Amino acid sequence: MKKIAFFITGLLFSVAQLSAQNSNKNLKKMNLKEHYTFKLSDKVTRTSVTFKNRYGIVLSGDLYLPKNPGNEKLAALVISGPFGAVKQQSSGLYANQMAERGFAVIAFDPSYTGESNGEPRNLASPEINSEDFSAAVDFLGLQKNVDRNKIGIIGICGFGGFALNATAVDKRVKAVATTSLYDMTRVMSKGYNDSVTPEQRNKTLEDLSQQRWKDAENGKPAKGSRNLPEKLNGDEAQFVKEYFDYYRTPRGFHANSLNSNGAWLMTNPLSFMNMPILTYVKEISPRPMLLIAGENAHSRYFSEDIYKIAAEPKELMIIPNAVHVDLYDKVDVIPFDKLENFFTTNLK
């Protein structure tokens, strides 16, 4: 089948069908089953947990707790993202940092990916992935050491959009923050900077519709083709180089991550094409929203546009000189003190 041009454009960073036999020897030496891309703080405990979402899918998460929490119930956070990543990557790093600051935090693998259940594999859904956040809220609210009236959400990259969507509908969430926000429904349906023409969109939908016939005939959905190269040639777009530097090097590689080591299904964009998830973002108010983006991030416009349409209270924080992936794992760039203050102030 011919490559779907727009599908490739919209998901260059996340549809990598990459071989585990990478030439990088450091990747081969990793104990990938137990591998985390960051070091667990000696002030924090981490426990593997599972919980079900509203669709009966069993999600896999890591619960991070401060070792010396005191006697009062803890304020809590739910964290996931980026789109195509797993809990051993950015979301776990964030959870580790925020637990060190006194929060109970769960980082989880979204439905159909990582160690979470759901068939077929390597699928995303704007509704189900938003529901995943609320399911994690369910889990946290049942913990005896958590104050269920003090629960917030952090969404990273594509899960920033799902985090906002979940917060809009789930009034139990008292505050929400995003970093390197992506609106996946917007980028899949309209392309970067809304550059896709009606003709290109129609062609994409035609290709996806025809792919459904092939999947039906074969009895299983086809995987998308690799878009991130196994090796860089040097002439790739800058943001592709940045994604490669995180997902395909020891810095952020994980075998369970679709961005590091797999591919979304070919028809994955279908559920995103007609589902603008941020239609009701104003309904997050009066609960506070914090949007954090890098000054030089190719995705910066997503945060800026949401800030324009969101209702107060809201805040947009631009990190000087930072690019999109800097907010994945660079602890000296990610404003954790700001996040701590934001949630301490608003989870009351």
Score class of each variant (00 low, 15 high):
residue 145 N to F: 15
residue 67 K to E: 07
residue 276 P to A: 10
residue 166 A to P: 02
residue 29 K to A: 15
residue 24 N to K: 08
residue 169 V to A: 08
residue 202 N to D: 13
residue 23 S to M: 11
residue 288 P to Y: 02
residue 229 P to Q: 13
residue 77 L to A: 05
residue 306 I to P: 02
residue 70 G to C: 06
residue 155 G to S: 07
residue 237 A to F: 14
residue 17 Q to W: 02
residue 231 K to Y: 14
residue 20 A to E: 12
residue 123 L to S: 02
residue 21 Q to L: 12
residue 157 C to Q: 04
residue 183 D to F: 08
residue 203 K to L: 14
residue 280 Y to R: 15
residue 214 K to T: 14
residue 189 S to R: 09
residue 105 V to C: 12
residue 36 Y to I: 04
residue 175 A to N: 00
residue 124 A to H: 05
residue 53 N to Q: 07
residue 135 A to E: 03
residue 269 P to Q: 13
residue 156 I to D: 00
residue 310 A to I: 09
residue 171 K to Y: 10
residue 173 V to S: 04
residue 103 F to Q: 06
residue 329 D to F: 13
residue 334 I to M: 03
residue 163 A to P: 04
residue 341 N to T: 14
residue 264 W to L: 15
residue 237 A to D: 06
residue 182 Y to Q: 12
residue 137 V to S: 01
residue 297 A to V: 03
residue 316 L to C: 13
residue 214 K to A: 14
residue 203 K to A: 15
residue 207 D to N: 07
residue 249 T to S: 03
residue 186 R to S: 09
residue 4 I to S: 10
residue 235 D to L: 13
residue 181 L to R: 04
residue 191 G to E: 06
residue 177 A to F: 06
residue 340 E to P: 02
residue 115 E to D: 15
residue 327 L to E: 06
residue 3 K to I: 12
residue 67 K to G: 03
residue 24 N to W: 00
residue 52 K to L: 12
residue 133 F to N: 02
residue 37 T to I: 14
residue 127 E to N: 11
residue 192 Y to A: 11
residue 46 R to P: 01
residue 6 F to R: 08
residue 118 G to F: 02
residue 283 E to W: 04
residue 183 D to W: 04
residue 185 T to F: 05
residue 247 Y to F: 15
residue 35 H to N: 06
residue 11 L to W: 00
residue 181 L to N: 00
residue 242 E to Q: 14
residue 196 V to W: 01
residue 128 I to S: 02
residue 274 N to C: 00
residue 75 A to I: 00
residue 9 T to F: 09
residue 32 L to A: 11
residue 13 F to P: 01
residue 342 F to V: 09
residue 162 F to K: 02
residue 205 L to I: 15
residue 79 I to M: 03
residue 45 T to C: 01
residue 83 F to V: 09
residue 286 P to N: 07
residue 64 Y to H: 13
residue 104 A to I: 01
residue 149 N to G: 13
residue 164 L to K: 04
residue 25 K to A: 11
residue 50 T to R: 10
